[in-house]
Design a protein around this nucleic acid. Structure first.
Length: 705
DNA sequence: GAGCACTGC
């Protein structure tokens, strides 16, 4: 990169109006049923309404903890909040980051005697959040974690009979709903971070609404539902819960100055580079920069360019510590973003949207937002998932901007014009409308939802979309049609018990027939976590040499099986992982997943046999369960799927990349520049006909017509 | 011929 690129022309930005309608000011005209003034000098009246528990004289806590709780903006509104929440079945709570809503509301409810008859559940989209929030709240209550306050996430249940406030992942509550769709354990469910609209939260909206209604009809303990959101788009939540009131809480966000570009930027990477060095030249070096890009490759390239330019800066310029950040980066390298830069050195973090929600870095003064994101879209017609670089939504842009104002006032450079911004989508399309619904549909059927096609989703997926999922489940033998009513077959019910994609659950359930359950458990565990293979681009030759000894000409599944075996035989050694370019953290997770899946098999009294060295039975088992995902070699040397004749290619990460097997099953199709098959296994076409004669006969006829 | 945003059970 030429040096002149580092020194930008004079200001190319123009100031924006600032965050006009952030959750920082309640916009006029919004239907906020009740306004809770909090923080500042707002809340004089609230104090008289406080129940005695919150008064210092009655407080069992040391003064410091109590003072800290009292200093939160939300505290002033405590009395009003409790008075409201006591009488409401459902409420929507709009609270900015830093308002303290997530840690305080569950405590207020408990202290106020609301929901004490049973457990108060607080859901989170992420495990770490559930764990750290539970830890903090149990500290504030001066109780041992797992007693009054606990958490439940996959692999980790820190609760007891005494637990009254329980933090859990939204996926975990959804799983609980399969065995008890009325959520009888709970008196109150708080759905936090609802604005993120994860697929699990979206399904939970429907589940809690139905449970609330049904419990009322049955005259059981009422279920209180509180939806918490950090963005202004709460009308939808309110409407969905029959016009539930919106309670508004002010937070503690610092002002952020926003600059837009004057002209649209055709090369956002170059624009980002220029902005970084413009800031670097002008701002004190103690102020760190966070840049949002779209993916690993882009981030690594940009990091290198920044380092190269920073090396050749003129005297007097401070130095620069450039840190990439993305999910597949090894954990130790991710941690570096939390360490302070050496004196006289500026930290520049170049990140994917992982820094938007999942990872919060302190000390960020400047945010550079390219306005781009890599995200998945789903096409129900073709069943294809497309991973594409696209524009962010307005809410996403505000989320990024907010990362600049966490401790102090900040600045956000938006690498697009204000007009462009106005044309961004208002909200990110909820995940439930963007991904394959096979798992969700299976779960809803396991909860005995009367009709999945008319299930009360807050944002309905298209009927085609649900129909595609039903068709997939039918092929897997999970469904039967009883008098026009869809119900699960015994196999389907068993599939729902596994925390896996239905087709993977089916693979496990079929494995006893092929006497290879041990091997299949390993393979499915490996497929259901992030790749255990670490491929640093700079050491490609080394990686290839080391990996050679594991590679099987039978494909990726058998290769992965070989790697896991070697890992196990060395006693799960971390040094072995390092030498063999294996991600040890993911490998440990594989072992954990495997033992969970094995436990579920035990509970079903499944025989667990090993095929020992026989890999053919393993591949037969894969062929029998993954037959819908098959591709065949065409006369011209390309591949096409058996199902829809979609042209596909072998992904470069596959061990079969340079091979041309006649027939393969794959575990995933991904559309980037091309349509790629990932994780391939060489199979015999005959096995497939054996597995699903009807399916392939139909396909054959279809291709002849 | 050549590549993978982020979660979660």
């Amino acid at each position: 990169m030429p040096e002149e690129a580092g020194f930008p022309p004079a200001k190319r930005f123009r100031p924006g109006a600032g965050p006009p309608r952030r959750a920082g000011s309640c916009p006029p005209g919004r239907r906020v049923v009740m306004l809770l003034a909090a923080g500042g000098g707002g809340g004089g009246g609230g104090r008289r309404q406080q129940p005695p528990l919150a008064q210092p004289s009655a407080s069992p806590y040391p003064e410091a903890v109590e003072l800290q709780r009292r200093s939160l903006p939300i505290f002033q509104a405590r009395g009003q909040l409790l008075a409201q929440l006591r009488n409401l079945d459902s409420a929507v709570l709009l609270g900015e980051t830093g308002s303290g809503k997530t840690t305080q509301i569950p405590q207020y409810l408990y202290e106020g005697g609301i929901g004490r008859q049973a457990i108060i559940a607080v859901t989170q989209p992420r495990r770490v959040a559930a764990i750290s929030l539970a830890t903090r709240v149990s500290d504030e209550k001066r109780t041992e974690l797992g007693k009054l306050v606990g958490y439940t996430v996959r692999f980790d249940d820190v609760t007891s009979e005494d637990t009254k406030i329980k933090f859990l992942t939204d996926g975990m509550l959804l799983r609980e709903a399969i065995s008890d769709s009325l959520l009888r354990k709970y008196s109150c469910v708080i759905l936090d971070e609802a604005h993120e609209r994860t697929i699990h939260t979206d399904v939970l909206f429907g589940v809690v609404k139905a449970a609330q209604k049904r419990r009322k009809e049955l005259g059981k303990l009422p279920l209180k539902v509180i939806v918490m959101s950090a963005t202004m788009d709460v009308d939808l939540f309110s409407q969905y819960f029959s016009g539930a009131p919106v309670l508004y809480l002010e937070g503690r966000q610092h002002p952020i100055q926003i600059f837009y570009t004057k002209q649209p930027q055709h090369d956002y990477l170059h624009a980002a580079l220029v902005s970084v060095f413009q800031i670097h030249q002008e701002a004190p070096c103690s102020q760190d920069i966070l840049v949002f890009l779209t993916g690993q490759e882009e981030i690594e390239a940009m990091s290198k360019t920044c380092r190269d330019i920073a090396k050749h800066l003129p005297d007097g310029c401070s130095s620069m510590l450039v840190l990439p950040l993305y999910a597949s980066l090894p954990y130790a390298q991710q941690l570096r973003v939390f360490q302070g830069a050496p004196k006289g050195c500026r930290k520049v973090i170049i990140s994917t949207n992982i820094a938007e929600t999942s990872i919060t870095i302190t000390g960020i003064k400047y945010v550079v937002d390219t306005g781009m994101v890599k995200a998945k879209k789903y096409n129900p017609d073709s069943g294809l998932e497309v991973l594409a670089v696209q524009r962010v939504s307005k809410t996403q842009a505000w989320q990024r901007t907010g990362r600049a104002g966490r401790e102090d006032s900040g600045v956000c450079y938006r690498l697009y014009t204000e007009d462009e911004f106005e044309k961004f989508e208002k909200m990110t399309v909820p995940e439930i409308q963007r991904c394959n619904l096979t798992s969700v549909t299976l779960q809803l059927l396991a909860m005995k939802v009367p009709d999945v096609l008319t299930f009360d989703f807050m944002s309905k997926p298209s009927p085609d979309h649900i129909q595609a999922a039903i068709a997939q489940l039918e092929l897997l033998g999970a469904l039967e049609n009883k008098d026009g009513q869809l119900t699960l077959t015994p196999i389907g019910r068993k599939m729902a018990a596994f925390p896996l994609e239905p087709k993977f659950a089916k693979t496990i359930l079929l494995s006893p027939k092929f006497h290879c359950t041990e091997e299949i458990l390993t393979i499915i565990s490996l497929l259901s976590v992030d790749s255990v293979l670490y491929n640093p681009p700079s050491r490609r030759d080394e990686v290839q040499a080391v990996r050679k000894k594991f590679i099987s000409s039978e494909g990726d599944h058998i290769t992965l099986l070989n790697i896991y075996r070697a890992f196990k035989n060395t006693g799960r050694n971390k040094d072995w992982c390092k030498e063999n370019f294996v991600n040890s953290k993911n490998m440990m997770l594989v072992a954990e997943v495997r033992s969970q899946l094995r436990d579920i098999c035990f509970k079903m009294s499944m025989p667990i046999a090993s095929s020992r060295g026989d890999t053919e039975s393993v591949r037969r088992c894969l062929a029998h369960s993954l037959f819908v995902s098959t591709a065949e070699l065409q006369p011209d040397g390309s591949y096409a799927t058996t199902d829809t004749r979609q042209p596909v290619a072998i992904h470069p990460s596959s061990v079969l990349f340079h091979c041309k097997p006649a027939c393969v099953v794959y575990t995933e199709l991904l559309f980037t520049n091309k349509c790629y098959m990932r994780d391939l296994c060489v199979v015999d076409a005959e096995w497939l006909y054996e597995a699903a004669p009807d399916f392939f006969r139909r396909k054959l006829r279809a291709s002849r017509n």
